[in-house]
């Protein structure tokens, strides 16, 4: 129970990061929260009819769309100017990844505020994709850029540090109960060794 709360605290509030560095926490937390809201907002392109909660958060999603690139840029700059984080950052994993997310956000904002593509057409296409029976792709250039960048992100996701999203639930430092006295924990390979 204690362990579950601990993991929940990390996943929902980034509690250890809060202890570690307030500036990173503020930027990181706002970034992740904005990302979540933006993703939820986009569900309206994949679901028909649009569920009530998703319809309700649409205006909030717009603000989140503005917060997302701003916080990503903040994290990018922080990474660059603090000598310790600059030392540990790698080109692709850290800088390119952040730039990719910033580009996705900016191309999305362009679609919202500048070019205004045919949303009905786009939604029809996304729904057809979900059924693995794609219709003709809408040929709006900004939309194509936005979608391609998202696909690149999704393809890269499982091979990158983005896996921290799931990995956090597997970290033994956080998800193990404090019960070694009560319970004899023995790894399968150690058990084999013991029987020999």
């Amino acid at each position: 129970m204690g362990a579950a709360l601990r993991v929940a605290g990390e996943a929902l509030f980034f509690s250890s990061l809060f202890k570690g560095n307030k500036w990173t926490w503020i930027g990181g937390y706002a970034f992740h929260a904005a990302f979540l809201v933006v993703i939820l907002r986009h569900l309206r392109y994949f679901l028909n009819p649009i569920p009530e909660p998703i319809a309700l958060i649409q205006p909030l999603g717009i603000y989140a769309g503005l917060v997302l690139p701003a916080t990503a840029a903040y994290l990018f700059i922080r990474r660059l100017i603090v000598d310790r984080t600059r030392y540990i950052s790698s080109i692709v994993e850290d800088y390119v990844l952040l730039l990719l997310i910033i580009s996705i956000a900016l191309s999305g904002l362009l679609l919202k505020f500048v070019t205004r593509p045919d949303l009905i057409n786009i939604k029809a296409y996304m729904l057809s994709l979900m059924l693995f029976r794609p219709t003709t792709i809408p040929l709006d250039p900004i939309f194509l850029i936005h979608l391609s960048l998202v696909l690149i992100l999704l393809i890269y996701f499982p091979y990158s540090k983005l896996m921290h999203a799931g990995g956090i639930f597997f970290s033994p430092t956080r998800n193990q109960a404090d019960n070694p006295r009560e319970k004899r924990l023995i790894a399968p390979w150690a058990e084999i060794k013991e029987k020999q």
Binding site: G20, T24, R79, I88, K161, H164, I168
Partner: peptide, 14 residues
């Protein structure tokens, strides 16, 4: 897990 999930946030650096 530890080798896979570091995001280089920098919280540990100091």
């Amino acid at each position: 897990v530890y080798l896979d999930i570091c995001v280089k946030c920098g919280s540990c650096t100091d």
